[in-house]
Amino acid sequence: MSERKIRVLVAKPGLDGHDRGAKVIARALRDAGMEVIYTGLRQTPEMIAAAALQEDVDAVGVSILSGAHNTLCPRIVELLHERGMDDCLVIVGGIIPQEDIPRLKEQGVSAVFLPGTSTEEIVKFLRENVGQRA
């Protein structure tokens, strides 16, 4: 039996429409053999958590460039927990000030990728950190 493919939800919460990064990442993860579901723009944390559950993903990749990360990320983590998705990784990419990163991690974000990160690095992170699931 072939190994289960890593499933990732690429999500774009908030009002921001800059989806270049989200789309490039979605394609790079697909090219790396993962199954990727892209939510489209302007998803509320509730919609993202519901989609994560429905699609039974291993990770949620959140793209935020607007500065709303401190409001939106903890909310997404919380909603995933409420739905019993404790193993689901939440990774964040975008314009995130250095000083916000420790707090986001304390709140349950697994990794924050800043501009300039190669897609390979994200692929590697997911391969190394997803898979502890049954």
Partner: peptide
């Protein structure tokens, strides 16, 4: 800011976390 660009007032729930940011 993004709420203004999207035609929402500052008190809309959709504006949470975004008012005055961008």
């Amino acid at each position: 800011d993004l709420p203004t660009l999207m035609g929402y007032d500052a008190d809309s729930t959709l504006s949470e976390g975004e008012v005055g940011k961008c």
